[in-house]
């Protein structure tokens, strides 16, 4: 339960960072924090069913209190995919910054400070 609460806190911290940061690299890092929060949520879900890793030892006849393998199986593939997609967006950021020579979102979009 504590892990679930922490994961939701991490996700929303990353969310606030994604919205409020101006530098594109820092924005992507905040998205990474959000991603880790979601992974932690799924692992926390599997931890509610049991505390031991869901790997069976064939010598032990009756293991109790094993974690739920389904959330882990769902999230383990998404880590690698998240890495590949993050690299892709970094390349896109690199292209953008080499043309505009800045990483600031405001300068790229040509906005002026409204306040």
């Amino acid at each position: 339960m504590i892990i679930l609460i922490c994961s939701i806190l991490i996700t929303f911290i990353g969310f606030i960072g994604t919205i409020l940061k101006k530098n594109l690299i820092l924005k992507m890092l905040s998205v990474g924090v959000m991603n880790t929060g979601v992974i932690t949520f799924f692992v926390g879900l599997s931890y509610r069913s049991g505390k031991a890793a869901p790997i069976i030892d064939k010598l032990l006849k009756n293991q109790q209190d094993l974690a739920d393998p389904i959330p882990q199986a769902v999230i383990i593939t998404s880590i690698v995919i998240g890495f590949a997609v993050l690299t892709f967006s970094l390349v896109y950021i690199m292209l953008l910054t080499s043309r505009r020579s800045t990483m600031d979102v405001k300068r790229i979009e040509g906005e002026t400070d409204e306040s």
């Binding site: 892990i3 992507m28 599997s46 869901p54 383990i76 880590i79």
Partner: peptide
Amino acid sequence: FIGAPDVAMAEASIGAVFTTFVY
């Protein structure tokens, strides 16, 4: 520690090493 060694291995090898290099 919370019963997901598979996910732990993936996160350690990707998040701590490879992503840092790429960034």
